[in-house]
């Protein structure tokens, strides 16, 4: 889970000559792979880009609890229910961790969350798709967490220290979720009934393309992407990461005994990669604009949770204040 499209504010890259001495020093540090830490000087654009990216990433963890939360009350066995709960709990933890990393840049989590609820901040497009059968819990773990990991493994080397350290910690848990998700599908394909096998294929059919969209648009021409790469916030292009994901996922798909909903998917002996069909970019941009299947429901649920919980948070603040006064009086 991460950010797919992050504005950097850059129209084109600055040359070394156009940079101020501070900018040049910063760029040299980045080029030398020295991590940038909260107290270091950084260009305003770098700071803002990271706030956008890390907050989108954090929002994705939180909104991402909802499609799985949709099945937690209906999980079919005690074991699967416990696994799903542990996973959702991890996601809340990842959200907290990422909001903390974001706050090292001077941003405020409540303000950023407010932007999410107003539709001004994005989260990963994948969570706007509904979870319609139990096998979706397996497919989300395998494909969605799988796609997130491909991206996050690279982000472990991102130039901003706190973000990079968050990724190292988060990747460990995500890999575990991905294996668990794959196991759900594998068990159903190996030992399940015909109905269960059909559930698995149905889940893959619905989530395959949305998972590929998680890597974002073709980015070679985008100034945002070039700037992020120059700052080493991003380390690989969207298309490179997508190809890596496809190459590692297709053998897993075949091992399951399932198929991808892509007639153009085939091994290319010459390139040593899988070729695959064109993504429906219209759908991708529609979803990002708020017109996916569940965009409205997801934001409404999150906004309601925070709005309706206001009196609870106010009570906690009032109580803490009273306790402080009592301690001073004593």
């Amino acid at each position: 889970m991460y950010a797919q499209l992050v504005e950097t504010g850059a129209k084109r890259l600055k040359t070394k000559e156009e940079m101020s001495p501070e900018e040049r020093e910063f760029q040299e540090k980045v080029d030398a792979e020295t991590k940038i830490e909260p107290k270091n000087w950084m260009p305003e654009g770098y700071r803002k880009t990271l706030i956008r990216q890390i907050s989108q990433h954090a929002h994705s963890e939180v909104v991402g609890m909802l499609p799985e939360g949709n099945w937690v009350t209906r999980a079919p066995t005690l074991k699967r229910k416990l696994q799903l709960m542990a996973k959702i709990q991890d996601e809340a933890g990842h959200g907290l961790y990422l909001y903390s990393a974001m706050e090292t840049l001077g941003a405020d989590r409540d303000e950023e969350i407010e932007k999410l609820h107003q539709g001004k901040a994005k989260y990963s497009s994948i969570f706007n798709y509904p979870t319609l059968n139990w096998a979706d819990m397996g497919a989300v773990g395998w494909l969605v967490d799988g796609a997130a990991i491909v991206n996050q493994v690279v982000l472990q080397r991102t130039s901003y220290g706190p973000y990079s350290r968050a990724m190292i910690r988060i990747c460990k848990e995500e890999s575990f979720h991905q294996r668990q998700g794959y196991k759900i599908l594998l068990d159903m394909m190996r030992e399940g009934t015909e109905e269960q096998k059909a559930m698995v294929q149905d889940a893959i059919n619905r989530l395959w393309w949305p998972a590929l969209m998680m890597f974002g648009p073709h980015d070679d021409e985008s100034p945002n992407s070039q700037q992020s790469m120059a700052w080493k916030i991003k380390r690989k292009s969207n298309d490179e990461l997508r190809q890596m994901f496809i190459d590692q996922t297709v053998p897993q798909l075949e091992f399951l005994g399932c198929t991808a909903p892509d007639p153009d998917l085939k091994w290319n002996e010459e390139t040593g990669h899988y070729d695959f069909g064109e993504i429906n970019w219209q759908e991708f941009y529609d979803v990002l604009k708020g017109n996916g299947p569940c965009n409205r429901e997801r934001i409404k649920t999150r906004k309601n949770a925070i709005d309706e919980g206001a009196w609870v948070r106010e009570a906690a603040v009032a109580y803490a204040e009273k306790q402080k006064q009592r301690a001073q009086a004593a």
């Binding site: 939360g69 074991k79 416990l82 809340a92 907290l96 948070r313």
Partner: peptide, 28 residues
């Protein structure tokens, strides 16, 4: 579990799921 995604704060999401996880684990 019904409260997943609906708690008044992110810390509470974690805590509620944590308690639920303990309880279902004990039930098992």
């Amino acid at each position: 579990c019904e409260l997943c995604g609906k708690a008044p704060a992110l810390e509470e999401e974690m805590a509620l799921m944590n308690v639920a996880l303990d309880l279902v684990g004990q039930a098992r």
